[in-house]
Nucleic acid binder design. Structure first.
Lengths: 209, 209
DNA sequence: ATCAAGTCTGAAACTTGTTCTAGATTAGCG
DNA sequence: CGCTAATCTAGAACAAGTTTCAGACTTGAT
């Protein structure tokens, strides 16, 4: 039994370029997804509703995004691009790299606080994603890494710095989850971010090596 | 409309003590859960199957564990207790606190590698859990904190040390997820753990303050 | 031992993610 | 234009988590 090649059209450098109407459909779907998510979070994004809101048949929705998690992760990619653009315009002002990274992440955090339900939907999808969504989740991860490296002001990071960035991302995701599930306060998240950002300082004094 | 008080019997210091048969039921359920999880991970733990395997009616299963996520988080609590016991017997041998913590987490990681599907089920449940599972997730978190503090050999940690531990836990959870979803290798997880554990060293030299 | 309250069972029903199907539409091409 | 393959639609069907309910069984107190 051949496993029907089920291609995720939303994969970034998509194989066949989308027609105009298809691009429009994709936009409508992502918009509906974000809208519903903004209301009630992960649970409120119901595939039938997304389909209806975006004027698309359920089957079509599934052709564009092979699962709810795919859809929400794509929604996150979308939002992340916005965010990266916004952040680029006003770079963080901190003295040290770790300050700038912490400032950047806190800025992103405040943006998420404005739409906590949307944040819930996206982050839950991200961490719940299984292997079938790996490419998309990886893309989100790369984007996040790029944002952090931007804040550090680095063009070619050392391995030690990349490790620090990885750990910062881990902390960022996990801290968001504890906040979203009400187990950590905003202040606590701030502390966690600031704490992990000190790791960057450990990678700075590399002249002694 | 009164929100029917739906008490999770599995909550640790349970309100009414369970009878023997109830305790036995609870054990059977957790055992079946772990067994099914060991096979196919999160998806393989199907409530109907758990009920059947543990010789309990579906409704009863839901009385003991109000959702699949509750069940899996309870399963994790159970496993964590084992683990803590095991770890206590052979304390880590490292010189510094950060080495001992890294060693302890790597030991736990190797245990998880032996049952990757079970790990998948438990960790996915943990990060997917919403507010209704907060108490149970918190309990898991406290247990994890205890394990790490044990490894550090601390009785009363400073706030800075607690922050470091929080970040280590964040990294631990998130690194596990990237490993489970195939986006990070075992080696990568090792590096991440070792990297974050250096944070502990930053809290050591407190005599100069 | 007996009664009331609480618990367990088996089965059906409901919800929402996902798949499938048959027929209409659209896109690209000669 | 007219054809063919791909895409889209509406709607049914299926799967698994969750809820509900009537009746049988236990438990604890009298």
């Amino acid at each position: 039994m051949p496993v029907e090649a089920k291609v995720d059209i939303s994969a970034r450098p998509a194989s066949p370029p989308l027609t105009e109407r298809q691009e429009a459909r994709r936009r409508r779907i992502l918009h509906a997804s974000a809208q519903l998510a903004s209301r009630g979070g992960f649970d409120a994004v119901q595939m039938r509703e997304v389909a209806e809101s975006s004027q698309v048949a359920l089957g079509t929705l599934y052709r564009y995004f092979p699962s709810k998690v795919h859809l929400l992760v794509a929604t996150m990619q979308d939002q992340l691009e916005h965010m990266h653009g916004t952040l680029r315009k006003k770079p963080p002002a901190g003295e040290t790299a770790s300050e700038r990274v912490a400032e950047t992440l806190m800025r992103a955090f405040r943006a998420l606080q404005r739409e906590p339900h949307l944040a819930d939907a996206m982050v839950r999808a991200l961490t719940f994603a299984d292997r079938s969504v790996s490419p998309e989740v990886d893309q989100v991860s790369r984007q996040t890494t790029a944002i952090i490296l931007d804040a550090m002001g680095l063009t070619d990071p050392t391995p030690a710095q990349l490790s620090a960035v990885r750990v910062i991302e881990h902390t960022w995701h996990s801290a968001l989850i504890t906040w979203l599930s009400g187990r950590a306060s905003i202040a606590q998240v701030k502390i966690d971010i600031e704490t992990v950002c000190r790791l960057i300082d450990l990678t700075e004094p590399d002249e002694k090596k």
